[in-house]
């Protein structure tokens, strides 16, 4: 097991290196530089030279690559080009906790509500509750989160005045962005759970459990759910990625001071250190999430062996 984890860690480092390299190549393949102005004013040539020298942009690309790899390895990307008073690290440590909080709350809400909806639908398959749950799920999948966000603001902030339309100040301001972001993943989880639950409930071991006189609740929670969860776990890695990147749009709509703003702005303004820093940072998080998902498999289904088969 330790051996497996060790090998996985190595693979993860390799993945991050590949991502970092690709980011570097793509970044320099986009035309323009951080000092190209958007409003047409051109910098003085000497000033631009000095600036490029300051940020090592005058050096040949291979050298720049090495400098950049060093910054990746040491988690130190230096200051942002557009916001010279902030380092990339401080941007991340400012913005990430907010994005992370939003992402995690969303993920938890999506999983729990998706589970409840899916299980209810499966237990009452082809009855009224099932139809209601699946209608909600289809709506959830088909409405994009930015549309839902606008609708929620219109209804609950403008019309009813119950919840603030923007900012990140109290739990009240967290409600709308969470709903907007969680609805899609919730719907996907609900549909998946419904299908796998219906299949699991017809299995022989469920009949065995019933023949022991266990209550329906216990049978669902103990015998069925763990088996029904497997396909959901498979999806969870991708879903988490979707939620994390989805926060960028939602943060913009609700004016939430998360990382999304820096991430999107940095690309528009060719803020090289910020692009590199945030991309590598996000990829690392996703890679760790996928690793956790893989570990969860082994826990859910003992038939799945993560490491080499032990000699019996």
């Amino acid at each position: 097991m330790m051996n497996f984890i060790f090998r996985r860690l190595l693979a993860m480092l390799l993945t991050i290196w590949v991502i970092a390299t690709l980011t570097f190549i793509l970044m320099h393949a986009i035309p323009g530089s951080p000092f190209n102005s958007h409003n047409g004013k051109q910098l003085n040539e000497t000033v631009q030279k000095n600036m490029e020298m300051h940020y090592n942009l005058d050096k040949p690309l291979p050298i720049q690559y090495l400098i950049y790899m060093k910054s990746v390895a040491t988690f130190n990307y230096g200051p942002s080009i557009k916001h010279p008073n902030d380092t990339v690290n401080s941007l991340i440590s400012d913005g990430f906790p907010v994005s992370f909080e939003l992402g995690m709350i969303t993920l938890i809400v999506a999983i729990i509500s998706g589970l409840i909806l899916g299980v209810l639908a499966a237990l009452k398959a082809n009855h009224f509750i099932d139809y209601v749950a699946m209608t909600i799920a289809v709506l959830g999948i088909s409405i994009p989160n930015f549309v839902l966000a606008s609708l929620l603001i219109q209804e609950f902030s403008v019309n009813l005045g119950w919840l603030p339309p923007s900012m990140w100040t109290s739990w009240k301001s967290e409600v709308l962005p969470t709903i907007a972001l969680a609805t899609g993943p919730m719907a996907i989880i609900a549909r998946l759970i419904r299908t796998s639950m219906i299949e699991v409930l017809t299995q022989d071991y469920i009949r065995t459990a019933r023949s022991k006189g266990l209550s329906p609740f216990l049978i669902v929670m103990k015998h069925a759910l763990k088996n029904a969860l497997l396909p959901v776990i498979t999806l969870l890695g991708t879903l988490a990625a979707g939620i994390l990147t989805g926060t960028f749009v939602i943060e913009k709509i609700f004016a939430i001071p998360g990382m999304g703003k820096y991430f999107v702005d940095s690309i528009n303004s060719r803020d090289y250190p910020v692009i590199m820093g945030t991309t590598v940072f996000y990829s690392s998080i996703l890679i760790v999430l996928l690793f956790i998902v893989d570990m969860a498999y082994g826990w859910l289904d003992p038939r799945i062996k993560l490491h080499k088969k032990e000699v019996s």
């Binding site: 299995q203 022989d204 071991y205 065995t208 023949s211 015998h223 763990k226 088996n227 003992p302 038939r303």
Partner: peptide
């Protein structure tokens, strides 16, 4: 009253 089922390969829950 208790019951023994036909196929022991599927009568037990694989995850418990």
């Amino acid at each position: 009253i208790s019951m023994v089922f036909q196929d022991p390969m599927t009568a037990l829950n694989p995850t418990l």
